[in-house]
Deep mutational scan, measured.
Amino acid sequence: EPSQADLDALLSAVRDNRLSIEQAVTLLTPSSGGGSGGGSMDAKEILTRFKDGGLDRAAAQALLAGRTPA
């Protein structure tokens, strides 16, 4: 399960175009075949909204942490 520091680094990389959204989703869902963790939004949607400015960093982190299976 990614830590808050991992999520923060991942969000920074996506925002700075050092990591594509697809690459980030793969890192967030290493063994689930890329499927959502059952959250209301999947990781790709969360990351896309964050990059487009629709979500701030704290909200994106909380959503990603919340949808990651324990």
Rank of each mutant, 00 (worst) to 15 (best):
Q61L: 15
A43L: 15
L19N: 01
S3V: 09
K44A: 07
K51V: 05
S20D: 04
I21S: 01
A5Q: 12
R67F: 15
A60R: 00
L55I: 12
F50L: 03
S20A: 04
F50E: 00
L19G: 00
D56V: 03
A65I: 07
I21Y: 01
S40L: 15
Q61N: 13
G54S: 15
A65E: 15
N17G: 15
D6L: 15
M41N: 07
A65H: 05
A70W: 00
G54V: 13
T48R: 08
S31C: 15
L7S: 02
S40Q: 12
S32C: 14
S3W: 13
N17Y: 03
L7E: 02
D52H: 10
Q4S: 11
D56L: 04
A9K: 07
M41D: 05
D8T: 06
K44L: 08
A70F: 01
D16E: 06
A62C: 14
K44S: 10
L11S: 00
L27Q: 07
A59W: 05
L55M: 07
R49I: 06
T26Y: 09
Q23Y: 09
T26K: 15
G66A: 09
D52M: 09
A9P: 03
R49N: 05
P69T: 08
K51I: 06
A9L: 11
Q23M: 09
G35S: 14
A58W: 07
D42L: 10
R18W: 07
D8L: 05
G33A: 07
S12V: 09
I21D: 01
D56T: 09
D42N: 10
L28Y: 03
A60I: 03
A43C: 10
L55K: 01
S36W: 13
L47W: 00
Q61F: 06
L11C: 02
R67P: 09
E1I: 13
A62Y: 03
K44Q: 09
T68L: 05
A60G: 01
T68I: 12
K51E: 01
R15N: 07
G37F: 14
L64Y: 00
P30H: 09
L47R: 00
E1D: 12
G33T: 13
I46N: 01
L11M: 05
R57G: 04
R18E: 07
V25F: 04
G53A: 03
G35Y: 02
M41T: 09
R57K: 14
S40H: 12
S12K: 06
D42H: 08
V14I: 09
L27N: 04
D42K: 11
G33Q: 14
G37V: 13
L27R: 06
L27P: 01
R15Y: 07
V25R: 02
A59F: 04
A58E: 11
G38L: 15
D52I: 05
V14F: 03
A5W: 14
R57P: 05
G38P: 12
F50S: 00
V25E: 03
F50K: 00
Q61T: 11
I46Y: 01
A5F: 15
S20C: 03
L55D: 01
G37K: 08
K51Y: 07
A70T: 03
Q61D: 05
E45H: 05
L64P: 01
T26M: 09
L63A: 12
G54A: 07
L55W: 02
T68M: 13
A60K: 00
E1C: 13
A5E: 09
G53Q: 03
A24E: 01
S20N: 04
S40F: 14
A65D: 09
D56P: 05
D16N: 07
S20W: 02
L19I: 15
A60Q: 00
R57E: 08
S36V: 11
G39P: 12
I46C: 02
M41K: 06
Q23I: 08
A70N: 04
T48L: 08
A58M: 10
A43V: 10
G37T: 12
A60N: 00
N17I: 02
S20T: 14
T48G: 05
L11E: 00
P2F: 15
G54R: 15
A70Y: 01
A9Y: 13
A13H: 04
P30A: 14
L63R: 05
D8C: 12
T26G: 11
D16F: 04
G34I: 15
R18A: 08
A13R: 04
V14L: 07
G33P: 11
K44Y: 11
E22L: 07
L10N: 01
G34Y: 02
E45I: 06
S32N: 15
K44V: 09
G66W: 05
L19R: 02
L64M: 03
A70G: 14
A59G: 07
E22S: 08
S31K: 11
D42I: 08
K51M: 09
K44D: 03
G38F: 11
Q61C: 09
R49K: 11
R57H: 10
S20H: 03
A60P: 00
S20Q: 04
N17E: 09
P30M: 07
A60W: 00
R15F: 09
P30I: 13
Q4F: 14
S36D: 06
V25A: 08
R15L: 11
K44T: 10
G54H: 13
T29D: 10
G35L: 11
L64A: 01
Q4W: 15
Q4M: 15
K51R: 10
P2I: 14
S20G: 05
S20R: 03
G33F: 10
A43E: 05
L28F: 06
I21F: 02
L11F: 05
S32M: 13
A13V: 02
A65S: 10
S31G: 10
D52A: 10
K44P: 02
D42G: 07
D56K: 04
A65C: 07
G38W: 06
A24W: 01
E22Q: 05
K44C: 06
I21V: 08
E22I: 06
L64W: 01
M41G: 07
A58V: 11
S40K: 08
A24Y: 01
D16G: 05
A70C: 14
I21L: 04
V14K: 00
S36K: 12
F50I: 01
I46A: 02
E22P: 04
